[in-house]
């Protein structure tokens, strides 16, 4: 696991353990997420990968009976500390979910929502941020003439890119994506993948995916989770071509069971 030494680390996770009641969902996770790279998390259902990324923006706080130990160091601070400003944290580390979840508002208002919450009021400023965010999410050309239409009238792939634009509007550093293309057809999926590849120039991206080819296409590094453990973390090509752990080998070759 020599990845962390190659470029600067955006998020450093140390000895992270997480329990839901008596069930331990994450076991002693240590990982350095590289800045301005795409990191893919793979593993069978229930292996802890979604729980892991939810920990990175404190979304597990919403679950009853959750207990977390260890550190998630971001910008020099352990974000698991009780005095962390969670609203501010989620502005810096945003999440895109499996199913696109636009607000039942116009396209414009969806993207302007975050900046408005954070105090941007001037119409011109909002116009600028909406255009910039939609362009960054590769959606501007498709919607620029109908910004006042309901977001719910967009296709699934467009809705997902709108959700990414909504995230970008609050200028985060890190984008967490939990199977962002699993509900989309191959063309919409490839647009999201191209977008992810472009966005890594400006953002650190962590993507949970069940699609190993997708991890191969977009991710610089890939982490394999199994039964709550981080089994292997390596450059994606190494993990898929010459995994070191037999469990990784069995999973990526589809021979589990």
């Amino acid at each position: 696991m020599d990845i962390a030494t190659k470029t600067s680390v955006e998020i450093s996770v140390k000895s992270l353990n997480l329990w839901f009641g008596k069930f331990q969902a994450l076991k002693n996770i240590n990982i350095g997420i590289q800045k301005n790279q795409v990191t893919a998390l793979i593993g069978p259902s229930g292996c802890g990968k979604s729980t892991f990324i939810k920990t990175l923006d404190r979304m597990n706080d919403l679950v009853d009976n959750v207990k977390i130990t260890g550190e998630v160091v971001y910008q020099g601070r352990n974000i698991l500390d009780s005095d962390t400003d969670v609203v501010e944290l989620r502005k810096q580390i945003g999440m895109v979910f499996q199913k696109p979840n636009p607000f039942p508002k116009s396209i414009f208002d969806n993207v302007a929502y975050g900046p408005r919450v954070h105090g941007v009021r001037k119409k011109q400023n909002l116009n600028e941020v909406v255009e910039r965010s939609l362009k960054a999410a590769a959606l501007w050309e498709e919607v620029k003439d109908r910004l006042n239409e309901s977001a719910l009238r967009l296709s699934g792939g467009q809705q997902q890119r709108l959700c990414i634009a909504r995230l970008l509007a609050v200028e985060p550093d890190v984008l967490l994506m939990d199977e962002p293309a699993s509900a989309l057809d191959p063309i919409a999926t490839s647009k999201i993948e191209d977008l992810i590849y472009e966005l890594k120039n400006d953002y650190t991206i962590i993507i949970v995916t069940h699609n190993m080819q997708q991890a191969g296409r977009v991710a610089t590094n890939t982490a394999f989770f199994y039964l709550g453990e981080l089994v292997e973390y390596a450059p994606t090509i190494d993990l898929f071509e010459r995994p070191q752990d037999k469990r990784t080998e069995d999973y990526v070759t589809g021979k589990f069971g």
């Binding site: 898929f240 071509e241 080998e249 990526v252």
Partner: peptide
Amino acid sequence: EQPMAKDLR
């Protein structure tokens, strides 16, 4: 079949 790891090799 999208072979991986030793299968791919």
